[in-house]
Nucleic acid binder design. Structure first.
Length: 468
RNA sequence: GGCGACGUGGCCGAGUGGUUAGGCACGGGUCUGCAAAACCUGUUACCCCGGUUCAAUUCCGGGCGUCGCCUCCA
């Protein structure tokens, strides 16, 4: 039985899907207003790992991750860039998609865009107005939080206490300062869609309610996103959806912790960000993915170059074992898989799962060092690595070909062709030197390659090389 | 001010009422021409003060500190 921590109720609960064996999983995807940063990567990896695990456990998972491609900030940023809003949004969306793929994040089953679901939003808004839970004020339509008796149940907030807070700006058009926009009338020059309430665009929140319902139905299983979305975004989704349908919106709410830089949250609004694509170029996707998976998805994590490098070092331990033992058709060791399952069944405990992975790696190496075989253990490692999505291959930047060719030239090796051939030829030169016990030359080749970012390791079967 | 999370060894980061998390780093060792890798091994733990208990890092209370949300944000 899988147990998971739901923010709604703040407790560990058993996973009991609406439809046996099936799971509807909705993740709040990005608002495509700027390129992705590390925090977006962390969130995507966290829920991708959970999704993969659920599939591995035999569930038929429908994974939906939306793209919010119309919103105030997008309009603002597009204007600053002097670009068409839709084109700008699409460009950003591509950047997110590319970064996700490099992190080994699987494509969603459905990736709906807000701008392509305006009619579904209109339907919800109309229902809310008919029920007296929403009202038109000027060119806008607002949801009336007073219409929802449960309002605040997700974030643990009380309407009256919030109203006395100083940070809520009274707005003449709203009946209550906490009411939020379902539909915003278009100002001149802004993109708009026609609606029963005049030309305009959707408010934030409503797109997720509409798209989740369209693809997963009411009372679907898992709704996920960052902790920073709990209020107001998810709270408002629940309010508008449940008020409109009279049914539960989602059964379980999962929230990933934030990524911190020097102890403070990485956030677009403060400029306190590290660009995800840049980090991917520097370290590769898998070290970053392992960095994320080493911590529990709900805990905040710290990001720094030093920490990714550390994760990269740890990742190489996995790679080395898998290179040491080629794939076989051996059955994965059941004891190892049990330990992995136990770790993951407990609120997707990837840190423990990773510990199981490294324990198994050590045991496998131990047996191999002792001259035995470890096929079942290595098969288990491969399986776990696959479930955690740590096998996507994007491990590091390219080789420094120029430096390698320079080394080749130094030792009179022809290196016009494939760079890997050049490395092999250099290793042959070194092997010859070693054979002749000319260790000075052998070491010079190795040192040269080392400076070019290629690590040479001698094994009983000859030398092999790895990217540094 | 309100709501919530958290304080673990050099760093990151799990977990548990009494028994080794794991990774990285550092020291010693085996192996190796030397290295690297791999393996063995060593070092520094559970913020403070009370309480419950045979026993608390783990439960309860208080304190101190950090962080998040309350405004757009994964």
């Amino acid at each position: 039985m899988i147990r998971l921590y739901s923010t709604l109720g703040r407790a560990l609960v058993d996973l009991e899907p609406r439809d046996e064996g099936k799971i509807g999983f909705y993740v709040c995807g990005p608002t495509v207003q700027s390129p992705p940063h590390i925090g977006h990567g962390r969130s995507a990896v966290a829920f991708d790992a959970i999704r993969r695990y659920l599939v591995w456990r035999g569930y038929d998972v429908t994974f939906v991750r939306n793209v919010t491609d119309i919103e105030d900030k997008i309009i603002e940023k597009a204007a600053e860039a002097g670009e068409d809003v839709a084109a700008f949004a699409r460009k950003m969306e591509e950047r997110f998609r590319d970064a996700y793929r490099r992190l080994g994040v699987l494509d969603p089953d459905v990736e709906p865009r807000a701008t392509e679901h305006i009619p579904e939003m209109h339907e919800l808004i109309t229902t809310l107005i008919e029920k007296g839970a929403a009202y038109q004020a000027g060119d806008d339509v607002y949801f009336s939080v007073r219409a929802d008796e449960d309002y605040g149940k997700l974030s643990g907030r009380d309407i009256d206490e919030m109203r006395s807070g100083t940070r809520i700006e009274p707005n003449e058009a709203k009946h209550d300062p906490l009411d939020f926009a379902l539909w915003k009338g278009a100002k001149p020059g802004e993109p708009y869609w026609d609606s029963p309430w005049g030309p305009g665009r959707p408010g934030w929140h409503i797109e997720c309610s509409a798209m989740a319902r369209r693809y997963l139905g009411d009372d679907f299983d898992i709704h996920a996103g960052g902790t920073d979305l709990i209020f107001p975004h998810h709270e408002n989704e629940i309010a508008q959806s449940e008020t409109a349908t009279g049914k539960r919106f989602a059964r379980y709410w999962l929230h990933n912790g934030m990524v911190n830089l020097d102890g403070a949250k990485m956030a677009k609004s403060t400029g306190n960000v590290v660009d995800l694509a840049t980090a991917l170029d520097t370290y590769g996707g898998m070290p970053l993915r392992l960095l994320f998976l080493r911590a529990h998805y709900r805990a905040p994590i710290e990001y720094s170059a030093e920490l990714v490098e550390e994760a990269a070092e740890a990742y190489r331990r996995i790679e080395r074992l898998l290179e040491r033992v080629p794939p076989t058709d051996a059955e994965a060791d059941p004891g190892v898989l049990d330990a992995f399952r136990e770790a993951m069944d407990d609120d997707f405990g990837t840190p423990e799962a990773v510990a199981v992975l490294f324990d198994t790696i050590r045991e496998a190496n131990r047996r191999l060092d002792a001259g035995g075989e470890a096929d079942a253990l290595v098969a288990a490692v491969r399986e776990i690595v696959g479930v955690l999505g740590l096998d996507a291959g994007d491990t590091a930047g390219g080789l420094d070909e120029e430096a390698i060719r320079a080394v080749a030239a130094e030792f009179g090796v022809e290196a016009d062709g494939d760079i890997e051939d050049a490395i092999e030829k250099l290793l042959a030169v070194r092997a010859e030197a070693r054979q002749a016990r000319d260790f000075a030359t052998a070491d010079a080749v190795r040192d040269g390659l080392s400076r070019a970012g290629v690590v040479v390791e001698d094994t009983p079967d000859g030398a092999r090389w790895l990217r540094a």
